[in-house]
Amino acid sequence: MFIEPMLLATAPTSFSDSHYIFEPKIDGHRLLFSQQSGRIRLYTRHETECTQQYPELLVPFDDDILLDGEVACAGPDGVDFEEVMIRFKASKDQRIKQLTISSPVTFVVFDILQYKGQDLRKLPLMQRKEILAGISMPNQHFGVIPFVEGAGEALFDQMVNRKLEGMVGKRKNSLYVSRRSPAWQKIINWSYADVFITGYRKDEFGLLAAIPDESGRLRPAGIVEYVTQAGRKEFYSRSRALVTGDDKNFVHLNPTIRGRVKFRNWTKSGMLRTPVLTELIK
């Protein structure tokens, strides 16, 4: 069974509030664990079934259940988003079997939506948390997210110090709704960098970003897709005189425009992960 998940609004900054609990934000992908009539099926937030990809999670609970959480891989430097994406994209049985050994996943559960045939979504969050805390996890690949009450700013400082993705604040009395809701808010621990704009994509909007390498030469650092309408307008007005050529997919520029971006982290190949343009530097 699939239920549209509850999605997070974005808070502009960390905050503390006695009406909220605060959880670490796990850097994996959303996973719904469904056990109905003893049959287990796993879904992403977009209802893509991924049961085959995570055999270590196909272990039954004592009764039918529907859980919401995040599936993640832990690497030597902490939670590794790229590793869980490798797991998610694997399709051949032998490859999946190998990855369960080299890159095992953990399903970090943060909510329970159904249990023993009962729909729990109209219960307040803290009551759902209490039910979840009383259920035994079936193996070591399952865990329940920890949380603190009220002290969001202190938790966020810990996330920043440990270079983790951020945190989530949830109203204690929130019901589970299948839409984006301000009752659940994410606060991202962004990284920041200044980049040179070396061109832009012709079809779907995107700015080609580059940064200097060790020798001072510019190297590609990714494509910036998240730019406000005002930012796009300013960019196009400044870039017209800088065009040096084009190819099938891109218009290339003399790289004199610089921009400041916020992003999740650097990928292993040195690319910006989900960069957002915050401003064009004058």
Rank of each mutant, 00 (worst) to 15 (best):
Q35P: 05
F81I: 04
T51F: 02
T106R: 12
K122G: 15
I135T: 08
R41K: 14
Y43N: 12
P76A: 05
S34P: 08
S16F: 14
K89D: 09
R128W: 01
S16Y: 15
Q94K: 09
E23D: 14
R95Y: 10
F22N: 08
S14Y: 10
Y43Q: 12
D27W: 11
A133M: 04
L132A: 06
S136L: 07
G38N: 07
A72S: 09
S14W: 05
K116V: 11
Y115M: 08
G134N: 10
Q53I: 02
Q53W: 09
E70W: 02
Q52G: 00
F110C: 02
M126S: 06
L132I: 02
A74G: 11
P60W: 03
F110P: 09
F81Q: 00
K92F: 05
M85W: 08
C50R: 13
D62C: 09
Y20W: 15
L42V: 06
C73T: 13
K25T: 00
I40F: 01
T51M: 03
Q36D: 14
Y20I: 07
S18V: 12
Q127M: 10
Q94T: 13
K129Y: 05
A90G: 01
R128M: 01
H29N: 15
Q35K: 12
K89P: 03
S91W: 01
T44S: 09
P55A: 05
L123H: 10
Q35C: 07
I112W: 01
L57P: 04
V71R: 02
I40R: 08
Q53T: 03
V59N: 04
D119E: 08
V84P: 05
L31V: 09
Q36S: 15
T51H: 04
I26A: 14
P55G: 11
K25F: 05
D62N: 10
F81V: 00
F22D: 03
G117L: 09
Q36Y: 06
F15W: 14
